[in-house]
Nucleic acid binder design. Structure first.
Length: 195
DNA sequence: TGCCCGATTAACT
DNA sequence: GTTAATCGGGCAA
C-alpha cells in the first residue's frame, strides 16, 4: 500500500511541493487518479490570488499548509489547490490534470463524456469529475474525503510556462509527468539533437 | 457604483 | 480560429 502524504509534506516551498506531487494519487471519496499536471503560485507572484492580500475568497491560502483552497473560476468552474509552506506565506499548488484510475464510471457520469482523456484534463474538469466544489474549501488534505498517496515508482518530471495567465507568464512553474497523455496541454520537450 | 478582467470550458465558424 | 457562460476582485469615478 502506498504511503499517505502527511500534512508536513505541504509545509515546504511551493516550488518543492509542486513537482513532488507529480505521480501522486489523489482521491476524493475514492474517486480520482494519478496527478500528472500542477502549477505553483507563490504570494510574491503577481499571478497568484494572494498577491494583493487576503480577501474572503482566498482566506484559506493565508492559513496553515495541508488544506484545500477551492475557488470559482470565470464564475462557472471550480479549481482545487493545495496550500503550502508555513502558515501565512499564502502559496498554493493548482491541480490541473489527473490520469483517471479510480471511479471511472462516476467520473463519466459527472462529466457527461466517455473519453477517459477528457475526464480530468484541466483544473475545471478535475473538480467536476472528482465532485470538488466550494464546500471543500478549507478542508484538511489528510482527512476524508481526501486521500493523497505518494508515488511508489520514480517519475520523470517536465516543467514549462503556466497556462491561462498574463502576469508572470514567463515563469516555468507548471509541472507535468513526462509523456503523459492526460495533461491539459502538451509540454514542450527539449529538442532532440539529430544524429 | 460601474466597468473590466480573469489560474476555464464547450460550442461554435 | 472565435465567443458565450457567469461572478468576485480590483480600480476608476
Amino acid at each position: 500500500m502506498p504511503k499517505r502524504l502527511s500534512r508536513a509534506f505541504f509545509k515546504r516551498s511551493v516550488h518543492a511541493v509542486a513537482p513532488d506531487l507529480i505521480g501522486a494519487t489523489l482521491l476524493v471519496n475514492g474517486v480520482g487518479g494519478r496527478i500528472v499536471e500542477v502549477e505553483a503560485y507563490h504570494h510574491t507572484d503577481p499571478a497568484a490570488h494572494s498577491f494583493r492580500g487576503a480577501t474572503a475568497r482566498n482566506a484559506v491560502m493565508f492559513g496553515p499548509p495541508g488544506f484545500a483552497y477551492v475557488y470559482r473560476s470565470y464564475g462557472i468552474h471550480w479549481c482545487l489547490n493545495f496550500v503550502c509552506e508555513p502558515k501565512g506565506s499564502a502559496s498554493a499548488v493548482l491541480i490541473r490534470a489527473i490520469e483517471p484510475t479510480a471511479g471511472l464510471a462516476l467520473m463519466r457520469r459527472r462529466r457527461g463524456v466517455s473519453d477517459v482523456r477528457l475526464l480530468c484534463s484541466g483544473p475545471g474538469r478535475v473538480c467536476e469529475a472528482l465532485g470538488v466544489t466550494g464546500a471543500h474549501n478549507g478542508l484538511a488534505l489528510d482527512a476524508a474525503p481526501f486521500q493523497i498517496f505518494a508515488h511508489a515508482e520514480p517519475v520523470d518530471i517536465v516543467a514549462g510556462p503556466r497556462i491561462g495567465i498574463t502576469k508572470a507568464a514567463d515563469k516555468p512553474w507548471r509541472y507535468g509527468l513526462k509523456r503523459s497523455r492526460f495533461v491539459s496541454k502538451p509540454f514542450r520537450l527539449s529538442p532532440v539533437t539529430p544524429t
